[in-house]
């Protein structure tokens, strides 16, 4: 399958989305990521029973925090697919890439630039 995927994102592999904590997602934004998407197994298919449900809750938590701090809750999203659904992964990554491009760069980047300019 030679699927086309955007080159704008970096994949961080975890054993299960249940391993993804709120702070991991927040740190990505703090370091300047424009968006984060978490891709877990199909709901009900988790090898650890609840990993992907936990991840979904944490994504919701982070989305709320991002909204409150002015970064925007739409910049984070959770997707579910099975390991055999490569084309769907490509589709989701294109969807997320398009959405983030519409939203523009993260305001964190702007804040960092101002901070660096003041320091210089």
């Amino acid at each position: 399958m030679r699927l086309k995927c955007p080159t704008s994102f970096r994949i961080v592999r975890v054993p299960c989305t249940g391993k993804v904590d709120a702070i991991h997602m927040l740190r990505a934004f703090e370091k300047g990521a424009d968006g984060v998407f978490v891709v877990g197994c199909m709901e009900g298919d988790c090898h650890y029973n609840q990993g992907n449900f936990r991840a979904r809750k944490r994504v919701e938590q982070v989305s709320e925090i991002l909204e409150k701090v002015g970064v925007g809750g739409d910049r984070i999203k959770m997707f579910n697919l099975s390991s055999g659904e490569g084309p769907l992964f490509a589709e989701y990554s294109i969807e997320m890439d398009t959405k983030i491009r519409e939203l523009g760069p993260s305001p964190i980047k702007k804040g960092k630039k101002v901070k660096n300019a003041n320091a210089a």
Partner: peptide
């Protein structure tokens, strides 16, 4: 982390 981001975006 949330506070850092808030103050980064709000000056």
């Amino acid at each position: 982390s949330a506070l850092r981001m808030y103050f980064m975006t709000h000056g």
